[in-house]
Design a protein around this nucleic acid. Structure first.
Lengths: 206, 206
DNA sequence: CTAAAATTCAAACGATCGTTCGAAGCAAAC
DNA sequence: GTTTGCTTCGAACGATCGTTTGAATTTTAG
């Protein structure tokens, strides 16, 4: 927790790992590929992070801390209003991630990493994500539960899981797709968010 | 192309590979794990399939041949009608896959394998799938294009790609999720298909 | 029954994996 | 200048990977 130079060894490793994990998966990308791309020594990973698993966790932490903070801030803004709609809550969940997916500095790669995490059945990784960011999903789930009182708690939870996964995959593809030439990024983002919110709302309502 | 005993070495390998690829990914599951689960010798994979990559292809071929045949049959049934709706075409695409995901004999594992394939950016695998099943997507795309004349061809194609990926991920999760106790499988399937079709329609229309 | 073809087997190949180690390099503190 | 602590480095560790080999075994054909 000292200084964090923009191009320190740690940051270069994290950036290269993010890119290679997105392209080849967690087991598919080796530490030798990562360190070569980051132009650092192989042993630097275990020196700075301890292990490959810890490096993977740090790749998530670097982005998820901010992403989930934005989601919670947006959720708080929504629940402060007098009338709360399902679409508002979904917007609070989706828009921060969509902004990240359209970010230039590695954000699009990270969203693809996130999509891979959903595909993984990795016990260790699931537990890490649940331990560190489960409270965010719980806060959203609580608001959803108030808006969808007809759904049993168990039913609501797995619907949220499916919806979140499908949204994550869709946003991951945005990171690869090239936008139409004439279309502005803001226009693209707003239209994509609209479609995703419609899908999620349809999937959550009875 | 000779006989195909139900529990031949080849079939046992394919079944074990499907299950392990779903759980640990293509690079994450080793041939030693696969052959151990199939209770066959390690060398049997290279004898019967030639290589791990060819085995992966065969895991796809075994299921996709039937899945895409059903999709095309359903599409033909739809286009034979006088009035064709966007929802009809989506139903022809989604329902066969949803039935597969709820199949008991390995189908649910395969849909998770399919979801992994979407997450993979693997050049070789993408080319194999495109070469062997690209014509199915082209047939659907042609019908979609007729129903959505306002969309440019390029725009339509990447929307279809995103929608197909998101649907695949959602269906993959169905394979893991346990149904509510009181709910029949038919009821569950029809309701899920309805939600997925709504999402896809919203994503494809302007 | 016997020869031939197909299949299974144990064992090993070289390559690559994540990880570890001690020396070398380098900064700041005294 | 010397010491101290942090970082980088080349080299190697044992483990595991996909693949290959040749002999043993089973199945098929004549």
């Amino acid at each position: 927790m000292t200084e964090a130079p923009l191009f320190s060894t740690k940051q270069r490793i994290l950036g290269a790992a993010e890119d290679l994990f997105a392209r080849h998966g967690f087991t598919g990308a080796s530490l030798r590929q990562v360190t070569a791309a980051a132009r650092v020594n192989l042993a630097a990973v275990n020196y700075h992070f301890g292990s490959k698993d810890k490096l993977i966790e740090e790749v998530f932490r670097r982005r998820l801390d901010e992403l989930n903070a934005r989601r919670l801030a947006a959720l708080a803004r929504v629940t402060a209003k007098s009338m709360v709609s399902l679409e508002d809550v979904l917007d609070a969940f989706i828009t921060p991630a969509l902004e990240l997916s359209l970010d230039r500095s590695g954000g699009s790669a990270f969203v693809r990493v996130l999509a891979r995490a959903y595909a993984e059945h990795n016990e260790h990784l699931r537990k890490f994500l649940s331990d560190n960011y489960g409270h965010v999903l719980h806060e959203f789930a609580a608001v959803f539960a108030g808006l969808l009182p007809h759904l049993a708690k168990e039913e609501l939870y797995w619907r949220l899981d499916i919806v979140a996964g499908a949204l994550t995959y869709a946003m991951a593809d945005f990171g690869v797709i090239k936008r139409r030439d004439g279309q502005s990024e803001r226009d693209f983002r707003e239209r994509a968010a609209l479609h995703l919110i419609r899908f999620a709302a349809a999937g959550l309502r009875e």
